[in-house]
Design a protein around this nucleic acid. Sequence first.
DNA 1: CGACCTTTTGAACGTATTCAACCGATGTGG
DNA 2: CCACATCGGTTGAATACGTTCAAAAGGTCG
Lengths: 246, 246
Amino acid sequence: MKTGRAPRLIDINILRVACSSCSLRELCLPAGLDSGEMERMDRLVTHRHRLRRGAGLYRAGEPLATLFAIRSGFMKSCVLHDDGREQVAGFHMAGDVLGLDAIGGGSHTCDTVALEDTEVCEIPFASLEQLSRELPSLQHQLHRIMSREIVRDHGVMLLLGSMSAEERLAAFLLNLSQRFAARGYSPNEFRLRMTRQEIGSYLGLKLETVSRAFSRFQERGLILVRQKDVRMLDVPGLKAVLDSKR
Amino acid sequence: MKTGRAPRLIDINILRVACSSCSLRELCLPAGLDSGEMERMDRLVTHRHRLRRGAGLYRAGEPLATLFAIRSGFMKSCVLHDDGREQVAGFHMAGDVLGLDAIGGGSHTCDTVALEDTEVCEIPFASLEQLSRELPSLQHQLHRIMSREIVRDHGVMLLLGSMSAEERLAAFLLNLSQRFAARGYSPNEFRLRMTRQEIGSYLGLKLETVSRAFSRFQERGLILVRQKDVRMLDVPGLKAVLDSKR
DNA sequence: CGACCTTTTGAACGTATTCAACCGATGTGG
DNA sequence: CCACATCGGTTGAATACGTTCAAAAGGTCG
């Protein structure tokens, strides 16, 4: 798990971890904290963790020790059915907080895997609960993050329950685009970190269906796809796909 | 909204609201509180609210003022797509807490409607946050409830994303059965409070498909359905439907 | 360069949807 | 209290959409 390092390097690493100097702080758990509060948060979040592409962060069943905030990179989380069926429950990028599903039962309920080299910050959960009792804005931000996760899941349920394949893919691309934009990346050009299979799993479709939908979007001039690179050519057109069926 | 009452009746009502004397307290928000803590909870939850069948509790867009705990009855919540499409996001019964989705953005993101005459307790959210800063077990229970909602939603996503119509209905019936059991009702015989249309909306199916699946389950001797009354004849058989596909 | 994985595309198939008719239960007004 | 209107549920037949199976091309990595 932990990569062995010389003591001096560890010290440097700890200094670097500070939320207060993190460019993502307004997207992440410490959003809205003042500088004094942020300093207390710094003392809580003292460890980072590097993951190679393909490496898992935690697996279903493991006890909850810390939440994780993505510092850089891209991850997926997968829920598992008893019978081995597995489904991608979400794709996660910088600023997202992972592990919230484990609070209820004390242990994780899904697997998380890095889809590219990824760095995560460890947020010890017991200490977080304690600190959030002292800092109302931290408490509120934690509540907001959990609530937004619920709202996000409701959106996915709507997508899975009542949209056609093309509508699902359009919604997926628009959502990704918007999240990249919120992090300062181009909303019009990005690289998919996941396979067609993983997109399909998330959208409740087979990989062939995803591939065909990509091709049709390209034929209609809505996007340009080459392998994992996507260029959004006609965002209003993609939005229209969502309203088409009324 | 509020039903006008004579002062004396209001007093009686307030006395009756107390969490400490509520039979659902171990299923609900105050689960795990000691008697001193429970008393403080009593002071927070001072209002109940009666809903006739068909009446709404809140609608998407309304600002969050209080969470609601179902004291008795049965409700549904519906998420709405921009274009008017609507989907049932959940069915809720005694002990369930409603309104968690509103915390993130400050206003509700779904509509909630009573499917039978229902009583809900009002939990002012700002006061709840304040009290949960003082009572670690309350804080933790709130976190647990939000987390469990996330896990539940993941389960629905799995269902919508990778199960056949029959598997979805079997999972739905088994889940209902288990929740009735947890509340002291028979897990083998219950009355559905929702229409086939609403079940279908929740499961991502059309009402005809739901109806056909019910009929096939009955033909196979798994259940007995007459209108809204269901008797579970072969629970292991229903569970087998879930594992059938592998 | 060769092995493997991902993606694309075609054709046949199957499941859920759509359209339509009918039945039964419920509730209302004469 | 019954006639009638309405709503919810069931069932059948035709259709549509996504899946499955299969083959081949393009990328990636040893």
